[in-house]
Amino acid sequence: MTGYLLLLTLGRRGLVGAWLADHLGIVFAFRWTGAALACGVMSFPLLCGRSDCRSRPSTGGWSRPGTLGAAPWQVFATITLPLALPGVLAGWCSLCEAIGEFGATITFVSNIPGETQTISSRSIR
């Protein structure tokens, strides 16, 4: 389903895909970049969710340095990011999800030996 939605939006005839192809010359279909895109989209909730829930509990007092004169980006770089780092690292477990991704990849870029054939699409034989 997600692969089909990707095809609808980022395919050569899709809203975003047509613009990308015309203006930037980027085509995803039948390329490994399309496979990477599909994997990224599929594993994004895992990555994002982990980072999200790690940074959420620290909302309270830790955001106060702003009142002491630190710029927002300084707060983010020195406090929020280090606190959320375990969550970000945990989110990298989504790498495994990306390796095993099958459905979205085969629908979006199909299965061409040597070009878009990943180990999961080879294993269906």
Partner: peptide, 19 residues
């Protein structure tokens, strides 16, 4: 290759959206 690139690109995006 696909998985590593996908994760590397998604990380900064993911941190941003999570924030």
């Amino acid at each position: 290759r696909v998985a590593v690139i996908a994760t590397l690109v998604a990380t900064p995006l993911g941190i941003g959206v999570a924030w």
